[in-house]
Design a protein around this nucleic acid. Structure first.
Lengths: 129, 129
DNA sequence: TTTGGATTACGAAGGTTTTCGTATTACATT
DNA sequence: AATGTAATACGAAAACCTTCGTAATCCAAA
């Protein structure tokens, strides 16, 4: 169950995961075209990184066709949780509440989002139900 | 003002910063004794890392005495914000609200903390104070 | 069927981080 | 003053990450 838990994606790997989470699946070229918009990077760099990620178990790929098709194995949710835990432990003395409070102070938090958060919290209001 | 913003502490550096944030200031030995509890690590490793951090401007040190005394220059708050931003951009499509929602789902969030968060949010309820 | 373009495979360079062994230096105790 | 202990300084190895050049491979179009 926590197969996916152990390994921390690196900076570059996260970039690639983001694309794959959005698209569901993609070829190296697909991913590379997105990355290229953001910064200078060679095609083989993207390729190599995705190959390494596959070895690490972060990505899966379908090699049946000439052009391989990759898909994420590490889930967005699991990865988020993983990083969240790391931050909570490393920067907020283990308190998730402190992190939330800190994040609430974040500049761009729209009134809509705040309302949504309040709604969400209401479910804890009455312990029974 | 954002002098402190640019540089991302590494994993090891974060460990050391944590100790210094708690203690305010400390010697290499002080820090090392804490780290040692958590994992296997040599004294000179801790020393070297702290020296590098000093070069990077993450730590300051008083070398007037034989045993140097270190103190954090990077603030906990600034570092938290820095990592928060990175997470929001990299894992939550730029939405701080999404991160908060995710963090609220975190297992160990005590009722007290939830109440505290609700209190905090009330300040946004009525636009005029 | 030959050739050109696109794709994957391979290997290695260069950078950063983490680690620690060894040397040097200073101090305190004798 | 001599010596042992504890601290810092130095350098380098090992691991990991990022990058890309080059080679090999496949396919489609001519």
């Amino acid at each position: 169950m926590d197969n996916e838990k152990k390994y921390h994606p690196t900076e570059s790997e996260l970039e690639i995961l983001q694309v794959l989470w959005e698209k569901g699946q993609a070829t190296v070229r697909d991913v590379h075209e997105v990355l290229e918009k953001g910064r200078d990077i060679g095609y083989t760099t993207t390729l190599k990184t995705m190959q390494i990620m596959t070895e690490k178990g972060l990505l899966g790929r379908d090699t049946s066709a000439r052009t391989h098709v990759y898909s994420p194995i590490a889930s967005r949710e699991g990865t988020q949780k993983q990083f969240l835990n790391k931050m909570i432990d490393g920067l907020y003395k283990g308190s998730a509440g402190r992190l939330v409070m800190g994040a609430l102070g974040h500049e761009k938090l729209s009134p809509e989002e705040i309302r949504e958060i309040q709604d969400y919290l209401r479910q804890f209001e009455n312990p029974q139900s």
